[in-house]
Design a protein around this nucleic acid. Sequence first.
DNA 1: TATGAATGAGGATTCATTCAT
DNA 2: CATGAATGAATCCTCATTCAT
Lengths: 204, 204, 204, 204
Amino acid sequence: MAGTRRTPTQERSRRTVERIVDAGAAVLAESGYHQASTNRIAEAAGVSPGTLYGYFADKDEIVAAVIERVVDGFAEAVAPALRAAAGRPVEEATRLVLDAVLAGVEARADLIEAFVDRVPAERYAPRVDALRDRVSDVSYHLVAASLPSAAPADLERSVWLAVRTVEHLTVRYALGRPPIPRDAFLDDLATMIVGLAPTGPPAP
Amino acid sequence: MAGTRRTPTQERSRRTVERIVDAGAAVLAESGYHQASTNRIAEAAGVSPGTLYGYFADKDEIVAAVIERVVDGFAEAVAPALRAAAGRPVEEATRLVLDAVLAGVEARADLIEAFVDRVPAERYAPRVDALRDRVSDVSYHLVAASLPSAAPADLERSVWLAVRTVEHLTVRYALGRPPIPRDAFLDDLATMIVGLAPTGPPAP
Amino acid sequence: MAGTRRTPTQERSRRTVERIVDAGAAVLAESGYHQASTNRIAEAAGVSPGTLYGYFADKDEIVAAVIERVVDGFAEAVAPALRAAAGRPVEEATRLVLDAVLAGVEARADLIEAFVDRVPAERYAPRVDALRDRVSDVSYHLVAASLPSAAPADLERSVWLAVRTVEHLTVRYALGRPPIPRDAFLDDLATMIVGLAPTGPPAP
Amino acid sequence: MAGTRRTPTQERSRRTVERIVDAGAAVLAESGYHQASTNRIAEAAGVSPGTLYGYFADKDEIVAAVIERVVDGFAEAVAPALRAAAGRPVEEATRLVLDAVLAGVEARADLIEAFVDRVPAERYAPRVDALRDRVSDVSYHLVAASLPSAAPADLERSVWLAVRTVEHLTVRYALGRPPIPRDAFLDDLATMIVGLAPTGPPAP
DNA sequence: TATGAATGAGGATTCATTCAT
DNA sequence: CATGAATGAATCCTCATTCAT
């Protein structure tokens, strides 16, 4: 990505980059941003410090690669549920997606915990913001489609609240392991989200 | 006691500590955890590095003092609303408290932003956890009083979700300044929270 | 000089700065700019690397302090001769000053050699340029006083040539130690310089 | 020989070396000795670092090749004037040569500036010393021929002063671009040089 | 021969902390 | 108690050079 850095063309270098990002993730997870020195990452990757700088311009670029991988993996994991939800009734669709979201978070709990608790947000916020924006856009269109008469401002507000709520609660549920059954958690979360729809619940 | 001139030494010490914590807050807010060196804090406080170590064992103790102050200030700011809410109908009480919570966050937005975005959570989580626990306890008892028939597990779950949701959304609303009117935000948030209350009889 | 650096106020720190500049000069003289690492300078000064950065913002500031000292010492050494030359006949005055200049260079031959041969000029040129400008100004006024009818452009040209010639030849004579008697060298140099004085009326 | 197609390998090598030296000159000129890393030179030459080390033992050998080229080019450029000057009257010959010298310097101003200002002299002094020695030898014989009665020591002294003066002033004139007309500069320089001749100017 | 990935010692610099005054 | 000079381990990063392919 950066200027004069090597772009992995050979098979060997691709594996090296892989090892560095793996090592970056591991060291970040166990030591936090500050203790994760480039030398330690290099050592964990089994390469020399110089090699590391052949592929990444600086420490933050390694961190960026790790978060990139987490975010991309999460997005991929949730995509099928988003497609499956299309056309389903709101409650069912919501539940389906929330399930996938929570599963996607749980699958990356270690790294997410490392970032959330041990890396200053400014280091990775841009990447997470980008994902959140994408998710918000999709959500907006989904909701707008099923509530054509709602005012845009109301829709935006609902989406803002829903996206933030889901993001935070799934992460905290996955990391905090509170004594709450998974299903009950998802049910309640779905209820909260559905209840946010601008016009309120349909009359009985 | 007022008017008498005494304990000059202790009084002076108190002011010195005050200045150091002020400086710590300022430097933390503008530079983040890592760039906030003890030397810079000392300089901003107008004391020598040595003096700083006369009052605090290490850098993290200064950070702890700052977060302590934020948390205590917040708790004090919210307390009156909590007392005023007692005995009111649920919706009104909720709205009252949420208003105070958001105001409490907004009043400390600068420092909260500094911590949330620029300080690794591990540095301040214990103190925030303690406050959250207190708030959760109070909330549990409030809800339990108005829903005597609800199962404890359902209550705990609702409280967990409600507290986390309020915490996160008020902070993000205050920091992110989204284009959402304050009242609409609080209305929606109140609806979410109230909607969480367990309704049916305890599951068999 | 630089921002947050310590300004030596106590006697102790003044001595420390002195030791660092001494060490900088010594290491520079024996190893050149590139091999003169800050750690080596610190070691030679008998202080820790950190101490060095308490007084100098970076390596170049140390180099600047060394050249500053060389230049200031030289200027001081030549000043008396400049004053003594005032009012003397041109030949005598020239010879007097040239003698002092060569002596000033010889007294600092080691350091001058280090800079000229082992430090890239960009590191110290500004300081030397400033001195040369001062010398050129003084020279211009001296010559203008004794040749009131000369055209300014001619005077400037002569001064430019003379100053550059004296600078270079005295340095190379002092450093190269060619088999030329000191007096003969100075006589010839004086002849060259005096011969440069514009003679005829200003060009039409 | 021209027109035949052969020695393909050696021809390719020659071009590769050429490209490396070109690149070395360019990188040296724009970055100075220290910043001119072998990797950057290799990249600028369009070859791999490994290839570079197939032709040059180390970085300094590349620098040497660049200065060699500068010096050789200069010597070639001045040679015709030296031949043309033979047999001419001293003043005319001097002026002729000085003109060629200045032109030779001006034609290489960029690289000369790079070396003079950004490369420690120890890296290239030997090669320049060799040229200066050659020029001094030639000068000695020229002067000795026209002043057969002069003492060798006097001749040597004059040549030492003249060569150094011409070298320095032409370089500084070419690099510094002072507001001095080229002709006036050369006239004055010629006067200085001619005036150095051991017996003084011929009686009128 | 050419490649380019890899090396690793070494450099400049920072900063939490100590301690003589 | 306060000072501020001093510390030195640790950090990020560079670059001349090597070597398997």
